[in-house]
Structures are given as structure tokens and as C-alpha cells.
Design a protein around this nucleic acid. Sequence first.
DNA 1: TGACGTTCCGGACAG
DNA 2: CGGAACGTCA
Length: 760
Amino acid sequence: MQNLLHNLNPEQLAAVTLPAQPALILAGAGSGKTRVLTTRIAWLIQTGQVSPAGILAVTFTNKAAKEMMTRLSAMMPINTRGMWIGTFHGLCNRLLRAHYRDAALPQTFQILDSQDQLSMIKRLLKANNIDDEKYPPRNLMYFINGAKDQGLRASAVEAFDDYNRKMVELYEIYDQQCQREGVVDFAELLLRTYELLSRNQPLREHYQSRFRHILVDEFQDTNDLQYNWLKLMAGTQGAVFAVGDDDQSIYAFRGANVGNMSAFEREFKVENLIKLEQNYRSHGHILDTANTLIANNSKRLGKNLHTDAGHGELVRIYEATSDLQEAQWIIEEAKSLIAEGAARSDIAVLYRSNAQSRVIEHALFSSGIPYRVYGGQRFFERAEVKHAIAYLQLMDNPHNDSAFLRVVNFPTRGIGARSLEQLQDAAKQYGISLYAAVPYVTGKAGTSLGAFIKLIEAARFETQNLPLPEMVQVVIDASGLITHYQNEKEGADRIENLEQVVSAATLFVSEEGFGHDAPALLGPTSQQMAGPAIVTQDGVEILDADAPLPVVMSPLSAFLSHASLEAGDNQAQAGQDALQLMTVHSAKGLEFDAVFITGLEEGLFPHENSQKEEGGVEEERRLMYVAITRAKRRLYISFSQTRMLHGQMRFNLKSRFFEEMPEDSLKWLSPKVQQHHWTAHPKAAWEDALGAGTNQIAQNIVKKDIGWRIGESVAHAKFGEGVIVNIEGSGGNARAHINFGRHGMKLLDLSVAKLEKVSG
DNA sequence: TGACGTTCCGGACAG
DNA sequence: CGGAACGTCA
């Protein structure tokens, strides 16, 4: 115990040892929130207040769940059996597997990822002769997911016009189709679990009395459905320990509702609100910069980070002439950091949008510095891997039409569009899956389709007694995928990825420990346990609280869940010492010795779309706050006068955020020398700024001899300072597009508008 | 059926 | 500009 609690600061200690009541922990960036969460769990167990089976800990990412598990087992030698630690989706999957009958799902229900969901919606629109121009599949998908994230079924969605009524109708059709196929999308995992528990009182009470302690990580990221899910799980007795930071709420666009924090405080009558404001990550100037910036937001719960680490270095600000030059400057600075002994992996380059990475990557590549880009496609999302998985899905649940369509003719086996049309007609007519409709298709199409069915059936039969990895191997071989890729020019990588699916299955089996003691519960599991896990009580099937592994699931089903819920990482080059490139969003939760935040320009950061959104700029500011607080010792912030975007040169003003940061903590590396240079030799400066290959615009500039130039800074009585982005027309008819930053883009008649030139 | 051309579009994210 | 998605042709 001594050991467990030592080195905690007073606030951390207070949080860890709170009584079993609802608690809200406002945990600032770098304040040791994961430590508090894990120590809390360990303390509850070690003091005998709760058995491991009484713990439910929820996270958003598999990574966070795994991290919690790792730290927990390092902290104490207790067995973690019975403890439920996982993502919302992983935990819901477990519950639905265990109670599939009550949830009205087939035992082998499968999970649609967003790709599958979208393709299913496209199929559905086509089958119902819906104009996909009028009802774009993507919009319908957002509509459906948005409704589900608010806990609304189609029947509960209010529609006030024909358009929305149609959307609701399509939502209903979509849900019916999912049910027919035995598939659920991500949002459905949560909604279905929510409905299951709210309708089934014995089951609900069973879990409510089992999970006396519910711990939630990143609480500010919860959406309405997740919040209600937690309320349901907690009941009146559950002690919910919610940890979050309203200042780091950056996922409103995907349904997160920061309001859940104050709602929680109110509805759970939280008496224990603890702020963790001691920061163990960043030096003073960095922290001051973050604090001063975020103070510009309203509606904060209120929090101010402080550190004992001293002021440290000033935050370095750099103004580049072009995005290219910005990249070159980053490389020069990074090189000298490395020369001073910094590890490359301790240096991060952050950007607001992915499009910015290309220029930086290009420059890094030319300079030979190893780098690693986060984001992008992950292992289980690769086409060839999805193909292999689709074969396995069909063996486990043949009614999954997405899986069927993905591989019925891949590799090609003479099943063309005509055959599939016939098949789809038959399936629609009888209201059955494509697989089940095959016998109704006659003629040549029927023969080739029949052969495909035989392939799947044979694979199932031949592999029924094989261990999972061997099963996967056999299926990949039988599918013909390898042969297909052998004939393809660049198929070698794909074949290697197919081999990796087998490795993934091997790893999965060893981690899940078939036939051995299970590790703690992370996501789906297929453990075959000793003794029954599901017991019947008053006619209701419930989980035996002591059973370590409640879910009876075939190894294949479990592996398929795993593939859907954990897309795997995309780190081909992981492990080597490389510069880290990523968006600000994906940097959340990480920390680096040195951080570059790039592209601090109006329109980019804050992003132009955020201006129109309710609370959009505040979210951008929180995003900037997240970015700043990633840095431990050194922080660079840069912006550029010009930037290539969508194949066009853009002229941006520097971000408003500069005015919101404390002058005393900043050090401007680029005094306004370049501005003078500009006005003195505009043309030469432009060509320099534009770089090679963009002389088109440079020529335009020369052409327009009307007293104003593209790129010139101007001032307007009403709109303030702006930059001329483009000029159209000539002479007395000339009009200019001027970017006035927060006042937006204006089109002004140059002969009418009263503009003044601004220098530097 | 696949190779190639054309058009369209452009924010961030995990499960 | 660069990619995804769709259309056309051999």
C-alpha cells in the first residue's frame, strides 16, 4: 500500500482514495491521469473494497486500454481475471456475444467497419432506386450514425420535411437489412447493448450490482449514447469515477459532447470534484503559453496548469515565406537538435490537416532524415487483408452480404455484373441474403455462383477441426488470393500482408491463451473456460460474476471481432529512430521533447470551416492547446506567408492565436526583415516565395498593373487587415478577393473600396 | 475485365 | 496538386 500511494501529489492521492461515490477528476494535460486511474483500481482492490470482478474501466482506444492493463499489472501482482477493461465497443461486443439471444442477434453476428457500412448503404440505395445524388451515401451514413449516437432508432427520429422523412425511412431499411445479414455497425454495438440493458431488468440489475466501480477515461470525449450507457450501467449504486479534461475536447465533430462533464456533475450529484493541475511534462514558458491561450475560451470548467520545472526555454516562433521554406527550416532546426543529441523519435512535427504533410515529407526525404507518418491505412483495412477476412467471415456467417460481394468475384471467377444482378433480385424477392439466394439463380450464372458456394462450404468443412492459424492459412490458399497477387506487378507486398494475417491469427491465439488462464479482458475473447459462465436465473440468462471468461465464442468469431475492433497499426517502420509526423488530433495523449506546430495561419489553424460552426473556433483553440501541451522542453510554432493548397497558391494571415499567447514567453526567430524585402523588390521576392514551377501566378502578378498586387497586405476600415488573394478583371473593373481572416473572404471592387497599403 | 482517361473535390478521428 | 471514384474502350 505504502508502495502504491507513494509519490502521488496531494490531489492525486485524494482522487485515488476517494470513497465509493461519483467523482469527477479534471485532469489537465500531463497531470498523471493514467496513473491516477490505474492506482485507483489497484487501491480499491488491495484495500479489499472490491474484487477484480467488480471493476469496469472504459476507454476510447485499444491503446489506452492496453496501457492501463500493462501499468496495472506492473503495479500489483493480483490476477486481473474478471476485471473488465476495454473500449466502449469492445465491452459492448462482449456483452452482446454473451446475451446474443436477448439482444436478438445471431451468435455469429459480425461487425461492419465504416467501409463496409458505406458500401452497404450504397447497395441499399441502388436496390431501392434512390437517386444517390439527392441522397449521397456518405450523408446517409452520417445521418444514421448521428442518430444512433444519440440513442435514436428510426422510429424515434423526428423529421419535419420530406427529405428527412426519406432519410429516416432509409435508416429503417438499413437497420432491417443489417438484421437480415446478422451484422452490426460500430454505433449499433453501443445502441444494441443500451437497449438490451434498459429493457431487460434482471440483466441490468445483475451488471449494476456486479460493477460497483466504473472508471471512465477521456470523459470529455463521450457522446450522448455513451453517457447514457454509463448511467444505465451505474444505476443508483455504481461509483462512477470520470476522468477528463474539457480543455482537450477536440472531437465534437464526431459526436462528443463536452456538456456531459457538467451533466455528470449535476445528474450524479458529484461531491467529489478534484482538479489535477500540477503538470509533470512541460517547462514553464510552454505551459504559460498554453494557459494564456486557452483562457480565451468561455464556458470552461476552469483549471490552470502549473509546473515545478522552471521556465525553461522560450517558445520559438518562425515566419516562413512559403510552405516549402517552412519545411526546410524545420529540417534545419531538427538537424541541430539531433546534433545536440536529441533522439529523432523525441521530435514531433504537428500539422492541422494531413495535406500539409506532403511538403514536409518531401523535404525530409530529400534530406535523408528518417521519419514516420502517423495515420493512414491500417493493417486490417488494407484491401488484400479485407479480402482474406471476407472469406473467413463468409465461413462464419454466410449471410454477410458485404463480405459476399467483396470476394464473390475476387479473384475473378466469371461472376460478372449480370449474374450478381440476378442474384440480388432473387435475394430481394425472397428477403434473404445473397448467399442463401444462390440456389434461386439458374443457368450459367447459377453454376458459377454455385461453385463459389462450394468453395466456401468446402473451406469450412476442411478446416473445422484445425487451430485458427492453420485455418486461416488454408482459407487464404484456397481463396486463390495468393495466385492472383503473384500475377500482379506489385503484388509482393500484398502477399506478404496475407502471410501477416496468419501471423496475426497466431498472435491472437497466444494472447487470448486458448485453453489456458485468460489474461484480463480486452476486447473480444474466445476463451474456452472451465465451468459454465452463463447461468440461468429466474429464466434469464446472466453472466456468472465469478466466471473469468463469460463468452463462448468460436476462435474464428473471436478473431473476426478482433479484426473489426482493432484495425491494427500502420507502423511498417515502427521501432526505428525516426522523426514523428502527425496531425494535432493524433498527437493527443502523446509527448515529445521537442515539438513543431506548423501552419499557424488563418483559414488553416483555425480552420476556415470552424468559423461557421457553433463553437468552432473554441474547439480549434482547444486543439492548439492540445498541440502546445505535447511539448516537454522545446516548442516551435511556425506559419507561412504563402502556401500551396488544392493546386493554388494561398496567402494567409498569421493565426489569431498568436495574439492570444503571452508575448513574454515567445521568441520571434524571424524579425520582420522579409516584409521589407517584399515591398522593396516585390517581383523578386515573389519568385523566391513561389519557388519553382509556380510561375503562372507570378506572371499574373506582373500583368496586373492596377496599383495592387496579389499577396499584398491591405487594411480596410471595417474588416481590418487582410491579404489580397486574387485579382480578377483589369483597370477600372478590377476586383480583388481579400482574405480578412476572421472577417472572412471578401470580393471588393478596387475602384470603390477604400483600401490602404500595409507594410510589415 | 482490366487498363486507362476524366471528373470531382478538398478537416480532424477510433472503434 | 493529388487521390478517389466513376466512365469508356479494347
